[in-house]
Amino acid sequence: MRKFGFVILMLVARIASAQKIDLKALDKIGINASSKTEMNMDGAALKSAANTLSEKNGDEAIAKKTVENLTGFYMRAYEFDKKGSFNIEDLKPILDQLKEPDWKPIIRVQEKGELTEIWIHSTKGEPDGMVLIAAEEDEVVVMNGVGVTNLSDLTALGKMNALK
């Protein structure tokens, strides 16, 4: 009975974290980066950060609305001084984790050494997670949003002012 309970617990834990992908493989890429942004925020951290966002400030209001329903936000963004410091093949461990039927590609564009992919995770047909991969010769961004149910929430982020 105890073993059965443990198996159920492991199964639930696995399902609960299925939308979260392992970004460890990117650490190797980040070593040579000239600029890096690494973020690991679970639901509690997001909630606490969201509480400090103002609804009156334009950018912060957009951010607050976006993270409202998220239960995890994980990002690796690396920029390189020299082109070719990073190879698209290095993203294979990340892409290998995105498997159908749970994960479905929405956008896949690969041209001239650039790669753009958006994958959506669904549980019982309902979207509940997302991965964005945008790689160029001198830049790579991998974002994993747990709890993303609507792409338009993230598209709204494009209205935020450019990086300050």
Binding site: T37, M41, T116, L132, M143, L154, L163
Partner: peptide, 19 residues
Amino acid sequence: SKEQLMVALRITGSKMKDV
């Protein structure tokens, strides 16, 4: 945390716009 989140969301927004 807020500042980090804002930076990460701006990067995401800019990439979504690129897409």
